[in-house]
């Protein structure tokens, strides 16, 4: 082929060339609908990445995947001993089942939040070299937390039974509750993923935020019984994490109930945060390559 048929600079009309050959612009953000379709088509990547990351993280330790269960079990033991003694008579009824549900579920939510924060910045080379909907990365962080929490939930149920609770049909209500938790955590993961991209310092704040949530979500104490300031009680009660714990305990631990309002508020938080997270994350899609 000949390369000598060059025209001068004046003869170069990029827009005309591009439109004549039906070329499309590269690097523009797809419409939300196409974006989600693309995501659905490539979800296998998020799942496989989650599974393999989990496998790789324990490949070298001799206890392997057992660590995902041993660490939370130790935590429950330590918190149970410390707060059980500290709170003494102010302990919530059925303290051990109360504490186990709190710690296991909180572990999952905060795990999604913190792993989500690292999902884009921690995979910078992936983001810089391959083209895929970036939402796959924070979603993969959620998937790997789900894989980690499933054996933990099994253990949680066994623990609850060992401490005097009996399985009943009521337990089934935990399933929709866990679905709400997953939706909420996915939203939280997406929000923290974009947040860290804009502001690397967000990572430094994360442990602080999760600590505050840990103490204010009624993991080991009863907000409804111990807070006597009306408005503060409402605020703490309707904190989404607390709502999901209230519902979980109402379905798994005897002596606790959830009001219809708890379900409504919990669902509103879950769908609201998840939807906001998706849209807000998508709106920066074309920028993730630059900021990381």
């Amino acid at each position: 082929m000949s390369l000598s048929s060059a025209t001068g600079a004046g003869g170069f009309d990029p827009l005309a060339l591009a439109s004549a050959a039906k070329l499309t612009k590269v690097g523009t953000r797809p419409k939300l609908w196409h974006y989600l379709k693309d995501f659905a088509q490539r979800r296998a990547f998020a799942f496989t990445l989650a599974r393999y990351n989990l496998e790789a993280s324990t490949a070298k330790s001799s206890l392997g995947a057992a660590w995902h269960v041993v660490v939370p079990a130790l935590q429950i033991g330590v918190y149970g001993a410390i707060f059980g003694l500290l709170l003494a008579s102010a302990r919530p009824a059925n303290f051990v089942p109360y504490l186990i549900t709190g710690i296991v579920l909180f572990q999952f939510i905060s795990g999604c939040f913190t792993d989500g924060a690292k999902s884009i910045t921690g995979n910078a080379s992936l983001v810089r070299s391959l083209d895929f909907p970036r939402i796959l990365l924070p979603v993969s962080a959620v998937v790997s937390n789900i894989l980690r929490v499933v054996p933990l939930i099994a253990l949680m149920l066994i623990g609850i039974v060992l401490f005097g609770q009996y399985p009943s049909l009521n337990w089934l209500l935990f399933i929709p509750d866990f679905v709400l938790i997953i939706l909420f955590s996915t939203g939280a993961s997406l929000i923290s993923a974009r947040m860290t991209v804009h502001m690397e310092d967000f990572n430094q704040l994360l442990p602080f935020i999760t600590r505050v949530l840990f103490y204010s979500s009624g993991i080991f104490w009863n907000i409804d019984k111990m807070v006597h300031i009306g408005w503060l009680k409402e605020v703490l009660h309707y904190n989404p994490i607390h709502l999901y714990l209230v519902i979980a305990r109402a379905s798994l631990v005897s002596g606790y109930t959830a009001e219809p309002m708890d379900w409504i508020a919990g669902a509103a938080w879950a769908f609201g945060i998840c939807l906001f997270g998706i849209v807000w994350f998508w709106r920066a899609e074309e920028k993730y390559g630059r900021n990381v």
Binding site: K22, T24, V26, G27, V127, R128, S129, E286, K287
Partner: peptide, 17 residues
């Protein structure tokens, strides 16, 4: 990276089939 759309560009554009 700019041609592949992985790196946002400041001005100008890339068109591709």
């Amino acid at each position: 990276k700019a041609i592949s759309g992985l790196l946002p560009i400041d001005t100008g554009s890339v068109f591709a089939s």
